[in-house]
Write a protein that binds this DNA or RNA. Sequence first.
DNA 1: TGGCACGACTATATCGATTTAGTACCGTGC
DNA 2: GCACGGTACTAAATCGATATAGTCGTGCCA
Lengths: 346, 346
Amino acid sequence: MTQRPKIKDVARRAGVSPTLASFALNGREGVGEETRQRILAAAAELGYRANPYARALRTGSSNSFGLLIRNLSNPIFLDVIAGAQEAAVSSETTILIADADYSFERERQHIERFAAHHVDGLAIAPVGPGESVDLWRDLRPGAPTVVLYATAPGLDDVIRVGPDARRAVRLAVDHLYELGHRDIAFLTAPRELMADHDRLDEFELACADLGLPPRPVFTPLNLAAVMERVTALLDSPTPPTAVITNSDYTAHGVYLAARERGFTVGRDLSVVGHDDLPTAELLDPPLTTIRMDGRALGRALFDRLSGADADRAGDGDPGDGAGRTEPVDHAEPVELVVRRSTGPVR
Amino acid sequence: MTQRPKIKDVARRAGVSPTLASFALNGREGVGEETRQRILAAAAELGYRANPYARALRTGSSNSFGLLIRNLSNPIFLDVIAGAQEAAVSSETTILIADADYSFERERQHIERFAAHHVDGLAIAPVGPGESVDLWRDLRPGAPTVVLYATAPGLDDVIRVGPDARRAVRLAVDHLYELGHRDIAFLTAPRELMADHDRLDEFELACADLGLPPRPVFTPLNLAAVMERVTALLDSPTPPTAVITNSDYTAHGVYLAARERGFTVGRDLSVVGHDDLPTAELLDPPLTTIRMDGRALGRALFDRLSGADADRAGDGDPGDGAGRTEPVDHAEPVELVVRRSTGPVR
DNA sequence: TGGCACGACTATATCGATTTAGTACCGTGC
DNA sequence: GCACGGTACTAAATCGATATAGTCGTGCCA
């Protein structure tokens, strides 16, 4: 094992200057066809791969994206990551993954680190409504930004990718309504931490349509906090008959709280999750949930980041809606999977 | 937002040469105390951060490590990642994460990418016994290498980190033996794909000690394959009364297969997992498992990679054992958590 | 007093790629 | 026969840091 070959070696072997080798390898024009082949062959023979640091230093772009997840404990993000990486590998791009662990401080640290690394773009499932996105825009103005699971106001000028949250909520509420539930709790982050406003908004709309009083339950969305908050909820004089959670992961917290308070899920308390994790059907009872294809979301995310998606909405054309709320840029389809955690109200 | 400040700007502001600024910022000696303070102050005022690409280009080291996971679908690796990142952030190090998805080809791709990125070290939970580790050593000889969950022969000269696999297996076997089980199946990868030899070895030892016939079940460890293999196992004329899996994740596959074949877990078939994922206690029935602190493993991994662990075994001193099998370098403690997926044999 | 070592600091080369600013050559039109 | 334009290619500058090889002044010893 000697040294990795450099472009100079490739050039020498092909009998040309490094400049021309660079041109050929980067597919730029102004290189004779025969010479181009010779250069590519030389590179292949030597197993040449450009030093990404040298390239990044010179070009200012690093062929990498940051992916900053608000809470990597939630396994749905594994699928998102897998989908994004899958897309990335084929385009020789590196994805840097970081976990904010529900901490603004950590989120900030990671963003700064990403900026120092000159990542070409950032996809972020933000902890809060948008401060961190502003920080990013400050640090790397003009770089593509994708927000995941975030529809807070002020995010109109970034690319928004996520599940079809409005439809998801609607499916859950309608399902519970049909089972006779009239008092439905809806787990959501407190407003100051809420990134995905569409969810709550749609919940309130759905309730209004059905003539139900909306019952949002504000809680930090880590497992311990959810458990605590739901326990308190079940202890209240009038506990709800059903709960909609934002993920299967938080549904676990609801299960634990219910068990602790002697509620039987599916009988005394109906629960609807989101994501359909592999474990959802193995829980006791199996979880009714809103399925989404996390890998597809990951791929969509990468495509948006890299600009691979053909035609972005564009500046001139306001699109169809022109309604109050801007549609998100990519809404991953969702579907309801009914299992035994939801049942008729008793 | 102007440009990021460069070291030249810091130097100018402090009235020194870039060289001296670099010395001061990297804490090297040969800088007057007063001047050092002035330089540090200037850097702080400008919010200077070194361009990692320039630095990496010059020094050949990138302040980053690769972490290559054989199967990121298994949520235990989330904890490992979180632990490693936690340790990394405080030392301004970046960890590149990749998922081999049980594919040698993908594993190879990621290793090559890591090598091209000049990562300073690699931690890998290899898909197979060790080919990929060889590839890595070829590409970056001398760089620190940590293998996770791998004890195959030929890995003696790399740093081995993992759960205390031998003790874990022993705990599981003893527990089942006490419940009366005499026919225990042991899920493990086929030999040509097996990275962690200690597990199987210890299983055979434990069985020998107890006078049981060992019953290893060789199967690829992805969910679908496990299901299929276990279904076949349950269809056999003499199905085992208990199964030990390598993770809670694969235990899910066993649950699904059991359910499909009409076996009730905990009654007709006892199951012991590994890891104690958050969902383990929510499954139906709650899963008996071997708990391990994944974050601690992640931290240990990082410490070993970065050389932060005080004293490595060293070359001269063969240590205590001198036995047949080398002890691994870090064995994370494990403990048995008994739930209802294991019961007396009927 | 001359020489030498040492501390504090600077000028310049260097890492490996891309970019910029050419150069050499050839064919064409007038 | 000469200017012109274009193609194929090259030399040198550049990105931002660190490494190497000095320079300069001071103090100490012989």
